[in-house]
Structure formats: structure tokens, C-alpha cells
Write a protein that binds this DNA or RNA. Sequence first.
DNA 1: TTATTTACTTAACGATGTAAAGTTAATTAA
DNA 2: TTAATTAACTTTACATCGTTAAGTAAATAA
Lengths: 208, 208
Amino acid sequence: MSIAERKERQKIELRTKILDAARTLFLEQGYEQTSIRNIADRIEYSPTTIYLYFKDKDDVFYALHQDGFALLRQFMRPLEHVSDPFERLKALSKVYTTFAMENTELYDLMFTMPAPMKALAEKEEWTEGDNAFNFLLQTVRECQSQGYFEGMDAEVLSYTVWSMVHGICSLEIRGRCVKVLSEATYENIVSKATAQVVEILDRMHTKR
Amino acid sequence: MSIAERKERQKIELRTKILDAARTLFLEQGYEQTSIRNIADRIEYSPTTIYLYFKDKDDVFYALHQDGFALLRQFMRPLEHVSDPFERLKALSKVYTTFAMENTELYDLMFTMPAPMKALAEKEEWTEGDNAFNFLLQTVRECQSQGYFEGMDAEVLSYTVWSMVHGICSLEIRGRCVKVLSEATYENIVSKATAQVVEILDRMHTKR
DNA sequence: TTATTTACTTAACGATGTAAAGTTAATTAA
DNA sequence: TTAATTAACTTTACATCGTTAAGTAAATAA
């Protein structure tokens, strides 16, 4: 049975090679420059070989997209040791925008590009996305059990908080604010706006 | 000189025809299906004619993108008569998300697609974008002069508020939340989250 | 009447995603 | 040991894309 095992190993190896090449090209040259042919060139296989390992181009990017959520989860890991949920929530906002700014292309793929979504639509569940969101949701719930955000729906509030930080990163990454903000304000706008969100959370809470 | 005038008129007419066709295709079939060839087919001209009126494909979408901002400004028009700036700010949030949800493809083009930005980068100023943002900025400043948002930077706060509502619309339009929210929460999530933002603004304000 | 300009088209290039058919080597069955 | 089968990969091909360069025919100017 060792022969079959070797083959299995080799299949996984090539799949990984494809993904590595795709990731490198994607991070270096962006989505548009990452074609099936470019990926194939880089690993010295014919373009159509890739279709033996992935359904289509979107499926390749779906795999990278999944990696992104794993990495985001890594970023969030240290926060698990912050016991005060309100502090954790505020720290989470900062970690989130930091992740986005340090991995802009990847963030874009995770949250704004259409590519991986067609592939995701076919899957039934989405563990990686759930994991990240549930960490936020859990934190919000703990805040509420300590008297914060009284009378608000935890899930809706989580979505709203997520929207806030996502909006900050997304406007910046997609370059919609450069022409509209003053030069001084634009510098470091993401961290300024994140601090603003934190302050808004601080000011609004009604702790009993 | 009437002959030159007629020619001028005809040029504008064809330019408009191109844009109308592009808009129709874009709204009906999305960005990917809107090719130069498809646009040309629809108006019964050869594809290359379009290049006599627009620099490249991005330039066509830049024009549509501009139209979008004009339309958004239309949506905001009635708010000019709301004298209380804090009420105006809250109404603006709702108007913004309504605009986005009623014009999802256009909103996407305005705030997330890369296409129009390459063309925009070459322009020096961006009146349409400025107009919309300044309406928000002006409102925030008026709020402050009435004692709201004490000690906060108006421009940064405007960007943050914009981020909040943009984040809400963008996550929904790009379909990143369907798989992650419960069915009940997902229904009408945009208006729920917008209401949440309004409530957050309400709760945080420290009016003297 | 001839020359020039304007408005448009035809033809072509290099690139894309992907399907179908072909090939070669490894494995299994006889 | 040999023939048949399967697995892994490639070659070829198609339709489409954005865009450039060269051509054409009609309108205008000289």
C-alpha cells in the first residue's frame, strides 16, 4: 500500500506547489496578473494540469482565501488571553485593521474580490469564516453579560462592529479616500479611524 | 458655423449612446459581461470606434462611476432642508445605505471596483467625490458646534462614520455575511445595522 | 477639381479561461 | 511475460478579451 501512499503524497505536493505559485504571483503582481498560464509556467507544468487539481481559477483563489482566514485567526489568537471582554473587543478592532494593513492584497481577496465567492457559494458551511465571526460574537456577548450594549442584539451589533472596521480598511485599500481627505488627515487614516471607533465604543457604553 | 455645431452635437450624442449602452449592459449583466465589443454591438458601431471617444475601458467606467456620484448627491438633496445637524447626520446614514441597496451594482462600481480608479488617478481633482464627502463633513462640523462629538477631529470622524455605513453595505453587497449570520439576523441586516449605527451615535453623544 | 481632414472600419496581436483529444508511463490482470 | 487498463500530464484548439495600426470613404477646404 506504500505505493498508493506515495502517490497520494505527490498529489498533495503538487497541489501545494500550485497554491504556493498562485500565492506568490498574487501577492507580488495582484489578481489580474495571476493567470492559470502564469501559475503553470512558474511550476513548469502545462496550464491544463491545474484543472486536474482545481475546478477552475476561482477554486484556486478560494483556497488562498481560506488561508487568509487561518492567518487572521492567528492574529486573533493572543486576544484569547484578554479576560476583560470590553478590552478584548477594543483590541480586536485594532488587531483587525493591523491584519488588513499588513496583508492588503490578501484582505482584499478575503472581503472584496468576487473570485472566491463563486466557489464558496457551492460549499455548505464555512468553518473559517464562522470561526472568526464567532470570536467577535462571543466577545460581544460577554460584554453584554457585563452590562455593556444593553438591549442590543448581539449578532447585529457584531455585524455592525465588523462593518466599522471593515469599512475603514476597505475604503483605504480601494483608494476611495485619498482624493477626498486633506493630506494631513489622510496620513495614517486607518489607525486614526480605528482609534475613533474605539473611542466611540468607549463613549457609548452604559455600564451598570 | 452651424455645420461645426451639428458635428459637435453628434459627437456628444454618440458619446452618450456609448455610455447608455455601457450602463445598460453593466446594470443588467455586471462588469465582466460588459466588454467593449458588447457595447459596440449594442449601438451598431465597430469596437474601435469607442476608443475615439474614451481612452480605454476604464475610462468608460470612470464616466459611469461619476454618474453614480451625481445620483448619490440627488439622494442627499432632501437632507439639505433638515436644519438639526444631528438629525441630518442620522438621516444621512439611512439615505446612504438606501442608495447603496437600491443601486448595488453602481455602488460597487463607485466604491469597490478597481476599474474607475485608474482613470481617476490621472485627474487632479474629484469634484463629485468631494461634494458628497463635504456634505457629511459639513454636517459633522455643525454637530460639533452644537456640542456633539466633543474633542474629536471632524475629518477623521466623518471618515469613520462613512466607514461604518460603507462597511455595512460593502459586506452585504459582496456577500461576505450570508454564511456567517443566522438566517433571522441576515434578513434585512443592512437596515438593522444602519439602525444600530444610528443608535450608537445617539448613545455616544455628549450634548452640553 | 484637387487636397486634406474627419469619422469610422478591418485586420491583427497577444493574452485570457477552459474543454476535448491525445500521449506516455505506471500499474494491474491474463 | 505480455496485454489491457488506468493515471498523470500535455497538445491542440476555441471563443473571447482589450487594444493598436493600417486602411477607407465621405465631408469639407483649397
